[in-house]
Amino acid sequence: MASAACNIGGFLTRFKPHLLMVIAQFGYTFQYFITEASFNHGMNPNVYITYRHIVSGVVMFPFAYFLERKQRPKLTFALFLEIFILSLLGVGLTLNMYFVSLRYTSPTFVVSMMNTIASLTFVIAVVLRLEVLDIRNPRGMAKVLGTLISLVGVMTMTLYRGPVMKHLWHPLIHIQGKTGNNHESWLKGSILTVTSCVTWSVWYIMQALTLKRYPALLSLTTWMSFVGAAQSAVFTVIVHHTRAAWTIGFDIDFWSTVYGGIVVSGLIVLIQLWCTEEKGPVFVTMFNPFSTILVAVLAYFVLGEKLYLGSILGAVVVIGGLYLLLWGKEGDQQVHSKEQEQSQLGYDEQKELRIQRVL
């Protein structure tokens, strides 16, 4: 009995980042549908982002203030400027582009394109030497092949539709369709989606760099929420001058804002920061395909959205490529752990020899 409990404990310890990222993808999946329903109800995406991060900042602030009082580094001007840019990439700029693109396209398309973030993040990490790449061994080859295969899968989902899958029953929930979803709107949404993927990849990389100088996860999450909300508010005021755009009722708009603030911008961002600190930015982005599957399945079975053969084939290829990349990274970490152990053993042996010489 004790042995079984020990094995379970060891399993949870080893795969804690993996389990947390899977939970995060479930949270993201629900966000796609609740925000689409809210936007179709009339909620302005820019106002939603502003309110959502105000909620996140207010909820996270007391935890950050009291739990990290002793470990929070001093906030210098240079560090605040870095957090400002980090907030712009993760909230002010990227999320505004992302949710506007969701308004012009569909949840399935947007979440499919999000799978490019893992490959883009990997390439940027290799260029900045945040990711180890040695193509002379199987692990390095696995990471390169995984990146290329995942890109092929994304291109398949984007460019090839194929036959539509037949619906087995009527949708359980009906969300009113978008107005004005013409070719021009779809093209605009596609461009915004691709651009947000690039800036999001840079955001993940910058998180890893900022955490080395500001390793207070709760405080960093709170800062990004407040600063990002201020950035989004400035942009929203410039674009929307009417008071009606800022008014929301106690309906789907309110609940989508609360959910997005507490769960997505609060808990999930905190999970991502912790996993980035433990495993690196590439690891965090590898789990996006899981959300792709959940969104496609729910959109098909629950909402009655069309599901094409190209989406299924592309998703399978993407997942295969990204988890080949994950296998390569896990191998790197095992080698790194062994090197650390050998280095520690060598240090201990040298220390023991020095003590024997003294004696």
Rank of each mutant, 00 (worst) to 15 (best):
A2S: 13
A5M: 13
A5C: 08
C6F: 09
I8A: 12
L12F: 11
T13I: 01
F15A: 11
M21V: 08
M21Q: 10
F30R: 00
Q31C: 11
F33K: 07
H41F: 15
M43V: 11
N46Y: 03
I49M: 15
R52S: 00
F63M: 01
E68L: 13
P73G: 11
P73L: 08
F80I: 01
L86W: 03
L93T: 03
T94P: 01
L95S: 13
Y98K: 05
F99N: 15
V100P: 01
T105I: 07
T108L: 00
T108H: 00
V111I: 13
M113E: 02
I117K: 14
A118Q: 15
A118D: 11
A118C: 15
L120P: 03
E131N: 01
E131F: 03
N137M: 04
R139F: 11
A142V: 09
S150Y: 02
M155K: 06
H170W: 01
H170D: 09
H174Q: 08
T179P: 00
E184S: 08
W186G: 02
S190A: 15
I191P: 07
T193R: 10
V194R: 02
S196G: 06
C197M: 10
V198G: 03
I205Q: 03
M206T: 15
T210G: 10
Y214I: 01
G228W: 07
A229T: 02
W246M: 06
I248P: 03
G249C: 09
S256R: 00
I262M: 07
V264I: 14
V269P: 00
V269C: 05
K279V: 05
K279M: 12
V282H: 13
N288S: 11
T292C: 10
L294R: 00
Y300R: 05
V302I: 15
V302L: 13
Y308D: 02
L313H: 10
G314I: 04
G328Q: 04
Q334F: 06
V335H: 07
V335S: 01
Q344C: 06
G346T: 08
L353Q: 09
